[in-house]
């Protein structure tokens, strides 16, 4: 029916203007596409892009307690940060924390994924156990470890004492606190990282191993020559995610140490939180947030630039 209609119209015009029809169709499909994307775009704009811009803007101002800007001070917030020993300590702790957590998370999870990838009876049980920490929230995990690290009744010190070693002030000794927080974090990360790496291992074609078996390759040779290269895209992804997560650590600190002792665990997000919502210095906090954003941007960029080249894609 509609075919007839259009044709009759066309006949009256005599010549169909295809260009115009095409243009109209293109406009229609653009509107349709935007309608599908609009909900996401609006929310991204309000809760991601606008705040990003606003944060940069705020970082050049002093603010009152309600977060309204009072005095424009240019780069002064940044200058203050880089001359503040507390912030420099925070940066140092953050980088050390990344250095402690990322490699160990990956190595441990990879090891677990490899032994959980063998075809053995009851392997499903172990997979569930390994991935269980993914279901444990930051708050719960921190509470578990808060007890484990407890100086007098904590399990770790009890074990040390029965072995005849003096107890450690896990969360009270500035030399140990960051290390203790890192252990907690690694434990929490294992579940997710394990799950992703196991998925990566399972997607490697078994015929690769079978043909290596025929060639008489040993277990470690296969790991080095097949598993690691074939797993490299997954590893690449996992490393990126773990690094970014490490920079965004907050919950563990809030429950375990509140940034102490003597600021040794005052990681950057916790520092931002304290500056903004305890000290109400939103300008300075925003400057820190901008730095955090830049660091993560650089990290992702470096990852893609240097990581991707070594990655073997199938």
């Amino acid at each position: 029916m509609s075919l007839e209609n259009i044709v009759i119209q066309d006949a009256q015009i005599g010549q169909i203007n295809f260009e115009q029809v095409k243009k109209r169709q293109r406009a229609k499909s653009f509107i349709k596409g935007m309608l599908f994307l609009l909900p996401s775009i609006i929310l991204f704009s309000i809760f991601l892009f606008y705040p990003l811009g606003r944060t940069i803007y705020l970082s050049f101002f002093l603010t009152n307690a309600a977060g309204e800007t009072t005095v424009f001070i240019g780069w002064q917030n940044y200058v203050n940060l880089f001359t503040s020993p507390i912030f420099m300590q925070s940066m140092k702790s953050t980088f050390l924390f990344v250095l402690y957590t990322v490699p160990f998370t990956i190595i441990i999870s990879l090891f677990l994924a490899m032994i959980a990838n063998e075809k053995l009876k009851g392997i499903g049980f172990f997979r569930t156990v390994y991935s269980s920490t993914m279901g444990i929230s930051v708050a719960a995990a921190s509470v578990f470890w808060l007890y484990l690290f407890h100086p007098s009744i904590g399990l770790l010190n009890m074990i040390l004492e029965t072995l005849g070693i003096d107890g450690i002030g896990w969360l009270t000794d500035p030399d140990w606190a960051l290390f203790a927080v890192s252990i907690t974090t690694i434990w929490m990360n294992i579940g997710f990282t394990f799950l992703i790496l196991l998925g990566g291992l399972q997607s490697i074609d078994s015929y690769l191993y079978e043909s290596a078996d025929i060639d008489g390759a040993g277990y470690f040779y296969k790991v080095r020559r097949i598993t690691i290269p074939m797993l490299s895209p997954t590893l690449f992804f996992v490393v990126t995610v773990t690094i970014i997560n490490a920079f965004q650590t907050f919950g563990q600190i809030d429950i375990l140490t509140q940034g102490g002792p003597v600021n040794s665990t005052n990681l950057v997000v916790y520092s931002i939180y304290r500056e903004a919502f305890v000290n109400y210095k939103f300008g300075s906090a925003s400057a820190q947030a901008v730095l955090l954003f830049i660091i993560i941007l650089i990290m992702t960029f470096l990852q893609f630039k240097f990581g991707e080249r070594k990655v073997h894609y199938q």
Binding site: L3, I6, I16, V21, K22, Q25
Partner: peptide
């Protein structure tokens, strides 16, 4: 005998 260049698939019968 009708030009259908611009007609969507569903209306081409």
């Amino acid at each position: 005998d009708k030009v259908v260049n611009h007609i969507p698939p569903k209306d081409r019968n």
